[in-house]
Nucleic acid binder design. Structure first.
Lengths: 115, 115
DNA sequence: TCAGTATTTAACAATCGTGTTATTTAACAC
DNA sequence: GTGTTAAATAACACGATTGTTAAATACTGA
């Protein structure tokens, strides 16, 4: 498949369980057991969610005795943020007003800043 | 199922074809035929991608003779943007520096703004 | 009404995603 | 070594996703 990074990030984030895991990790690293506790699903299921998050680069795993602490890595979210930003003008009222204002300026300032 | 809105948005965006459709629509509305043209897949496949985007609230469809013009609706991206923003401090260097700076201020200004 | 165009829906196949339980691996402690 | 704990992997089931082609629907225009 060779899926692109942004698709990997988005499909990893599409699952509510995985987003909850990230939220927990934003408060600090955690073991797989600790991550499993809040959910009604088994540890193997969480382990697979972690694998998805790891392949998307959203978490990193280290090793400490029989624990594998999991840490958040938010770097891929930077790319997502910049992707979303390209659409901000389509929903943001301030952006819309700014566009209209600039358009007015463009055609000879009839409603420009100094009347 | 009753999937939450953010999950719907994210899984809709996880597909590269659907993101390409949105990008095309950011330049203006288009018919299904026009949206199909750039891709190597059939029109029914595109029609179903559009249904996914519509259910996520990312596009709206109107009716004009035998055409069903499709329009971008970026509103759901606002929620996504604000979700991502909550993690900005985890990747943004400026945020990290600001955090460190504020922490210094907090513990008695040893490395504060005036030395 | 009939033919043509645009689009959706139906029926099907193949693959993917997510959960389960059972088993295996790895590290600790005695 | 044995036993315990933490986690991953295997094997499986099941439903969702995504594509296909063929048929149905909706509108236009003579």
């Amino acid at each position: 498949m060779t899926t692109d990074a942004l698709s990997l990030t988005l499909s990893a984030l599409a699952d509510p369980t995985r987003r909850a895991i990230l939220q927990r990790l934003s408060e600090g690293e955690a073991s797989v057991s600790e991550l499993t506790a809040p959910f009604a699903i088994s540890m193997p299921a969480i382990s697979r969610h972690l694998k998805v998050l790891e392949q998307a680069g959203l978490v990193a795993r280290t090793r400490h005795a029989q624990w594998r602490p999991v840490q958040l890595n938010a770097a891929p979210l930077a790319e997502l943020a910049s992707w979303v930003e390209r659409y901000r003008r389509h929903w943001d009222q301030n952006f819309a007003r700014m566009d209209a204002y600039l358009a007015e300026l463009q055609k000879g300032n009839p409603n420009g800043p100094k009347q």
